[in-house]
């Protein structure tokens, strides 16, 4: 398994489009933090929680880009036919998908960690230079909990992208589904269920439940609190991934 993970890591790092997506994912929150730090009209009234909230919100955009990266990582193999070379070299197909998930987990964790603390530091430094007084709290404070929640959520979303990539195989369609899932698809499902009499269905939409839990209690009437919301979303994604692995094993490459 280690050999396959090493092989998948080499594949992932030798495609330029992957790096481009990572750079864009890193740049967007940096731009937001810089703009907030420079342009905020009342820096002295900005609280530490608000800075964390801005970083987490802009990180949500980045994690969507990262999930697109893992969609492309898999679907481009189908596009270029390299999936046949891959599966001929590793006939146990699940090992390839699990290896990609491991790489996705590690890369997403590293990128989101750098992104979170860099932006938090940058935003705080810029605001402090303009008269704000933002203290970096201790190890287990609010910021660290948000950081853990954001990274965990990003990792689960990367698995989601990978699972959809395996199921759908077509890059544009899979990316559209990944991007529209939180924006439209879950809301439509919730609406359909609400019209059928299950009015609290939207509380149980897995992506939204986990996403709203990143910053803890925020007025969102979720059925589940932060760790349980993430576990619920992870369970949903694991079910999707398992269906994808079984389907992939059964169909012709």
């Amino acid at each position: 398994m280690k050999a396959i993970i090493a092989s998948e890591w080499l594949k992932a790092r030798t495609v330029r489009s992957h790096w481009v997506l990572i750079i864009i994912a890193m740049m967007f929150p940096l731009i937001i933090s810089t703009l907030v730090g420079i342009l905020n009209p009342d820096p002295q009234y900005v609280s530490y929680r608000e800075v964390v909230s801005i970083v987490a919100s802009s990180g949500a955009f980045s994690l969507l880009l990262l999930s697109s990266l893992w969609v492309i990582n898999l679907t481009s193999e189908f596009t270029h036919g390299t999936i046949r070379v891959t599966y001929a070299a590793v006939p146990a197909r699940w090992k390839v998908i699990v290896s990609k998930a491991v790489i996705g987990t590690l890369v997403t964790a590293v990128v989101m960690t750098v992104l979170f603390w860099l932006n938090l530091g940058l935003g705080a430094a810029l605001l402090n230079s303009r008269g704000a007084y933002i203290i970096v709290d201790g190890w287990f404070d609010h910021s660290f909990k948000v950081f853990v929640a954001l990274v965990t959520f990003a990792i689960i979303v990367s698995w989601f992208g990978l699972g959809l990539g395996v199921l759908i195989k077509n890059s544009p369609v899979a990316i559209v589904v990944v991007l529209l899932w939180p924006l439209i698809i879950e809301n439509l499902i919730a609406l359909a269920l609400a019209l059928s009499g299950y009015e609290s269905a939207w509380k149980w939409m897995p992506y939204q439940t986990a996403f709203q839990g990143i910053e803890g209690a925020s007025g969102f009437d979720s059925a589940l609190s932060r760790p349980w919301g993430h576990l619920y979303f992870a369970a949903f994604v694991i079910v999707v991934g398992s269906i994808a692995v079984v389907a992939d094993r059964r169909r012709d490459a």
């Binding site: 092989s7 594949k11 030798t14 495609v15 489009s17 270029h80 070379v85 070299a89």
Partner: peptide, 15 residues
Amino acid sequence: YVHPGRSARHHLEWL
């Protein structure tokens, strides 16, 4: 069946 953006050496190395 080769990724067009990957070099020949990298293609053989991952295999």
